[in-house]
Write a protein that binds this DNA or RNA. Sequence first.
DNA 1: CGTGCTACAGCATAGC
DNA 2: GCTATGCTGTAGCACG
Lengths: 90, 90, 90, 90
Amino acid sequence: MLHDDQDAREDHAVGGIAADRLRSIIERVERLEEERKALSGDIKDIFSEAKSAGFDVKVIRQIIRIRKQEPAEVEELETLLQIYKRALGM
Amino acid sequence: MLHDDQDAREDHAVGGIAADRLRSIIERVERLEEERKALSGDIKDIFSEAKSAGFDVKVIRQIIRIRKQEPAEVEELETLLQIYKRALGM
Amino acid sequence: MLHDDQDAREDHAVGGIAADRLRSIIERVERLEEERKALSGDIKDIFSEAKSAGFDVKVIRQIIRIRKQEPAEVEELETLLQIYKRALGM
Amino acid sequence: MLHDDQDAREDHAVGGIAADRLRSIIERVERLEEERKALSGDIKDIFSEAKSAGFDVKVIRQIIRIRKQEPAEVEELETLLQIYKRALGM
DNA sequence: CGTGCTACAGCATAGC
DNA sequence: GCTATGCTGTAGCACG
């Protein structure tokens, strides 16, 4: 029967190759997310250690943030330079 | 001299052990954040692959979310949702 | 000189009409963004009120989301979710 | 009966007062979200106008972003000053 | 039309 | 327990 054949093909697509593919995708993502979570845990541990050593965690976070932003700021300045050049028709 | 010793100790605290400790903390965190960012990139790549293979990424995300939750929790939210819907005549 | 004329015209463009136009654009956008931010604050306040009244904010958000979507769309995503779940034997 | 009374009160809570409260919350949020969306539309219109006038929208966005960040940067510098004072035991 | 990017909102967590 | 903050996910927008 056509209808059954369609179902069979669809089921196959779902239960066979594509399902394997889907499962693979999901499991790989879940694995990577676990690793990512583990790294977050490691980071958290370091901050705990820092706190125990008497550092101000909030301030350390800010330093890290600033260190990250600096390259961006360089780029921003560069862009602003371009803006002004453009405004001057250079 | 005591004063010099104090200065030495203070300088030491800033330029030596504590400063080194601080630097170590910051660099380790930065390193871990980089790794974490790399993992996020990997995850993104898998979703791109999934999309190319014809899967609906949003739905896959939803499945991963569900798999992460406790079944009881899912049930509870669902129940509450039904209650609210009823209250609104939906 | 042609070059001076160009400079003159360009300077005018920067210091005169175009610059004013640019300033106007920026200030109008900033004003609208402020208003938008204020509305976000109002929304947040309502959710705080809801929480205080014993409602589950997350569920309320979900209801609002559902009400925004086309019923057909909801159905479609749900169907796809079921297909994927079946494929995974969930 | 106490049990019935409880049920009555609970039912009332769902179908009566609380339901009204819930509906009110939802409708107010939806209204505010609409207004917010309208503002986003207005902003978009201004950018369209800017583009038509020959401005580079991306650059304008960046200028707005920078104008927003500047106060934050002042605060960051202040915080850094505190950090260094702290590092020096002042 | 699709794809990548930016920016915004929601969620979770950690600190007070 | 609530508030504040940072991270993640989603959605809208610009570009090819």
